[in-house]
Design a protein around this nucleic acid. Structure first.
Length: 489
RNA sequence: CGGGGCGUAGCGUAGCCCGGUAGCGCGCCUGCUUCGGGAGCAGGAGGUCGCCGGUUCAAAUCCGGCCGCCCCGACCA
């Protein structure tokens, strides 16, 4: 059935398209437990590459990895008032273990502030013990009412950075620095442009002083909060008695930050770059950058072509090759499957480049190189293949970011619009709208109620409009800030 | 939790209204021929029809209850 093989198109049903891409490209599958998913090798390979790069970036900014336990005494959650309000409803609680009811229930971490700051308090006595710059790679559990593959699952993988500092300003600098790291990663590696900015009171992290976020626009024009960084102030240090003696001899509470990104980014990658053929993975995150599809008729051709394919794979992927140009290559030598069927499969999986090589190519000392993003197909000499492939991959990485950026800007509204016009946009095509806000929570919540759109962030300066808005989108009073509005995941 | 949809082979489904041998496509296995955009032929394996109960000589089908999953809403990275 030809129809079975076609994906639902993005235009027809974006949600259905997303689910089909994730399942059929074998990024993930549903597990027997509601809301939980299995991350399959194709998906985990992308996550591993994300982890590796981010981990390098965290280390380069002075952080060390550590690991804190999955189980946390329930009482810990209650020590910070806003925090418990935010997370208690979605906590999974262990009440029985070892065949007995526990004296105190344990929660499965929904996030680790409480346990980590408890430990920091033990480790810090003097200002000389600060700053502490810790990151952990972990799984967390949040009992969400509605789940979606990668975007919101009951259990998810993430990293959470936790730091403690002597001063507010130092903590603030750290929170902003890590937001910048996230942005660099999302743009440089996922090729997913983001708007950075500050969250409003109603949208900030439970227990934070201030929350900053990276907001990306998906192809259905909805916003995805792709990463957050929090200046926690002294809220947690006071709740967990994280004190130190200052240089002047006084006792002070430490200033904390926390920041995290999760497997949600894989969903963001799919919704940023996928097309109606399937996934498109930016080269830097692709577990396989180049797949070689051998073409042959007779047995002797098969031997000859596979030999050539192996030679090419070795020369491109060899450890001896300069590390920066070493290519991750896979030869699809499956027998009994026609080349065309292989093309479709690798395109569905979003592998950036395909090299077709058959007897005619070998005779001409060439291969046919095909780009997944543009589907451009061209013959390339085997003599310069390494350079060609490396250049094409970097071009793809650049082009994918540029295309995503163009799409975002094309679906953003910056001119002054009436509230009625705003409602039309949100009821219709959606997108990002930059507009003034008076700062009142009532205007924010009314807009949310009437249009489902929320303030994604108060954008950082470089993202603000050339001409600052002067009136509030909702009430028409003088605006105090420019806000970015959108419907969100 | 409210609204909608769906549970039949690994996947997609027909059969259900009107009870009586569980069928089709894809995939899988074997063999031969194929192979430059989703191969063809032949043979073959694979099913507690979501679960429990009821009606009946007889239930995938009718009745009652339950469970699970997906989508849309309220909560969220």
């Amino acid at each position: 059935m030809a129809d079975d093989k076609k994906l639902t198109t993005r235009a027809a049903d974006f949600s259905a398209w997303y689910n089909e891409v994730v399942l059929r490209s074998e990024l993930a599958d549903y597990s027997p437990v509601k809301g939980c998913m299995v991350i399959r090798p194709n998906g985990y390979g992308i996550w591993e590459r994300m982890q590796r790069q981010l981990d390098d970036m965290f280390k380069a900014t002075g952080h060390q990895n550590a690991y804190f336990p999955l189980l946390i005494p329930e009482s810990f959650l209650h020590k910070e008032a806003e925090h418990v309000e935010g997370f208690a409803p979605e906590a999974a609680v262990v009440t029985h273990a070892g065949g007995k009811k526990l004296d105190e229930p344990l929660i499965i971490r929904p996030t680790s502030e409480t346990i980590i700051y408890t430990m920091f308090a033990k480790w810090v006595q003097s200002y000389r013990d600060l700053p502490i710059l810790i990151n952990q790679w972990a799984n967390v559990v949040r009992w969400e009412m509605r789940t979606r593959l990668f975007l919101r699952t009951t259990e998810f993988l993430w990293q959470e950075g936790h730091t403690a500092h002597v001063t507010h300003d130092e903590a603030e600098e750290e929170a902003r620095r890590m937001l910048g790291v996230y942005r660099d990663f999302m743009e440089g590696w996922i090729a997913m442009p983001v708007i950075t900015g500050q969250k409003t009171e109603s949208e900030k992290f439970a227990g934070a002083l201030r929350t900053y976020s990276c907001e990306a626009m998906m192809q259905d024009n909805k916003a995805l909060q792709a990463g957050t960084s929090h200046n926690l102030g002294q809220n947690f240090s006071k709740a967990f008695d994280l004190k130190f003696q200052s240089e002047q001899g006084t006792t002070e509470y430490a200033w904390n930050t926390s920041w995290g990104v999760s497997t949600r980014m894989v969903g963001g990658l799919v919704m940023t770059h996928g097309d109606d053929i399937g996934l498109r993975v930016p080269p830097l995150l692709a577990p396989i950058e180049l797949v070689i599809v051998p073409i042959y008729r007779k047995d002797e051709e098969r031997g000859e072509v596979l030999e050539a394919a192996n030679r090419i794979a070795k020369s491109l992927g060899d450890w001896d090759r300069r590390a920066s140009a070493r290519i991750r290559v896979h030869i699809d030598a499956r027998d009994g499957m026609k080349p065309g069927a292989k093309y479709y499969e690798w395109e569905l999986r979003g592998i950036p480049l395909r090299l077709e090589i058959g007897p005619r190519d070998i005779a001409a000392n060439q291969g046919v190189l095909v780009r997944r993003d543009t589907k451009e197909k061209r013959p390339v000499s085997l003599d310069t293949l390494g350079e060609d492939v490396a250049e094409t991959l970097s071009a793809m990485q650049r082009d994918m970011l540029a295309a995503a950026l163009d799409r975002r800007e094309a679906n953003s509204t910056r001119e002054r619009i009436s509230y009625d016009r705003f409602r039309e946009i949100m009821d219709g095509p959606g997108g990002f709208v930059y507009a003034g806000w008076c700062g009142m929570a009532s205007c924010e919540s009314q807009i949310k109620e009437e249009t489902k759109a929320t303030i994604r962030c108060l954008p950082d300066e470089e993202f603000r409009s050339a001409e600052a808005p002067t009136t509030c989108l909702k009430c028409g009073m003088a605006s105090t800030v420019e806000a970015l509005w959108a419907k969100a995941y």
